[in-house]
Design a protein around this nucleic acid. Sequence first.
DNA 1: TAATTAAATTAGAGTAGCCTAACATTTTTT
DNA 2: AAAAAATGTTAGGCTACTCTAATTTAATTA
Lengths: 224, 224
Amino acid sequence: MLSIAEENYIKQLLSLSLDREAKEGIGTNELALSLNVKPSTVNDMLKKLRQKELIDYEKYGKIQLTATGRKTGMDILRKHRLWETFLYQKLDFTWDEVHEVAEQLEHIQSNKLIEKLDKFLEFPEFDPHGDPIPTANGEIQVLSKLVLSDAEIGKTYRMVAVKDNSAVFLNYVMELGLGINNTIEIISKQDFDESMEIKVKGEAVRVSKKFSQNIYILSENKKD
Amino acid sequence: MLSIAEENYIKQLLSLSLDREAKEGIGTNELALSLNVKPSTVNDMLKKLRQKELIDYEKYGKIQLTATGRKTGMDILRKHRLWETFLYQKLDFTWDEVHEVAEQLEHIQSNKLIEKLDKFLEFPEFDPHGDPIPTANGEIQVLSKLVLSDAEIGKTYRMVAVKDNSAVFLNYVMELGLGINNTIEIISKQDFDESMEIKVKGEAVRVSKKFSQNIYILSENKKD
DNA sequence: TAATTAAATTAGAGTAGCCTAACATTTTTT
DNA sequence: AAAAAATGTTAGGCTACTCTAATTTAATTA
Ligand SMILES: [Mn+2]
Ligand SMILES: [Mn+2]
Ligand SMILES: [Mn+2]
Ligand SMILES: [Mn+2]
């Protein structure tokens, strides 16, 4: 059985690898940065994770999850997102509050618990942030979503997820009146700073490049 | 904030102190035995807990929780029992399965979570084992219950709780057709080994001394 | 290609939580 | 009251996870 620290390394490796081409591999410094620890700390842990055959990695090389490592990561991500859904749907947490608590709950060890929870929630497919929940088999639904910053002027989209999960970002999203499944119309784009004006629920708002890079959308007229 | 290890020491100290006179105090060896660690390990931890003003304790003396320590312990016990209730009522766990998972869930840190959970469960007063759930203020309902082994022949009682929470004991209780709120009639008692014959739901069964010492009862004709 | 910069690793150290073995104190028994 | 037993403490050591500082290797730039 893995320690909480080990689980966090594996989960982070999975998250990073889901954001890139499968064969790319992850660097020590990069992983350290994203986990808020020093590279030397990561280096120690990499040896342990390789020993346990959860990662492929050799000195000065890139890190990749093995099939087992990937499945392990998916289990943790599944728990994280199911707990977020529970907090949101059953306990009336807001979507900016769920992540922090789910960071703790994802480490509870009990297969029975997570399968019962899944059933209790009626087998949800997405968490409150629009992210797909992996199945018990470790499969994850990857829908080819766009980033708002790449949207075309004049077209209409549906917001499907957020990238950043921090409370400060999510609060801002809510403040602007935005939420999952909202329809977004692209009014204009500024060449200068790549800010854009968008229309949501009849209201026009201006958002920065940094903001629009953290909103995932789909073309409104695409089939699901 | 306390570590999981520290929380487990405090919780255990509370549990032990709830089973005796308030002023009695707890010994190092006794605590070590109940936590499955060595006395020297406990000794180290006692210094830390005293430093944090959670216990009163001096060299070669007995251990007692301070007011803060007691409140801390109550918070953990509250979480433990609320989670047990959740697992039992909402996720269809059996009463012998809940304890182990609650041992993990009791360490999740989030006031909001536990108060929302309490509300979601509609403010339960007792957990699946018949144990009272402490309030958010750290108060606990102490009803003066009897132990089945002290019951009188010919009288009728109501089972209100179990002492032992192990799956092996709880399974046996279920096998005998016994459960919380069942009516129990004392048919006879053997002087030789203090086993007793009792009647539950019309069925007569024989139980050992060790068994009857782990069942809590109340006189049937007492007001609640 | 040589120099420079970036990335990764190693060496050495600290804390928390556990252990065993030896020793000290207190309590109980004789 | 002395001896024996029980209880509690100290000393020293181990592992997991973290750090800083120094070093090595790889990648980039000149
Ligand atoms: Mn999250
Ligand atoms: Mn999420
Ligand atoms: Mn329990
Ligand atoms: Mn219980």
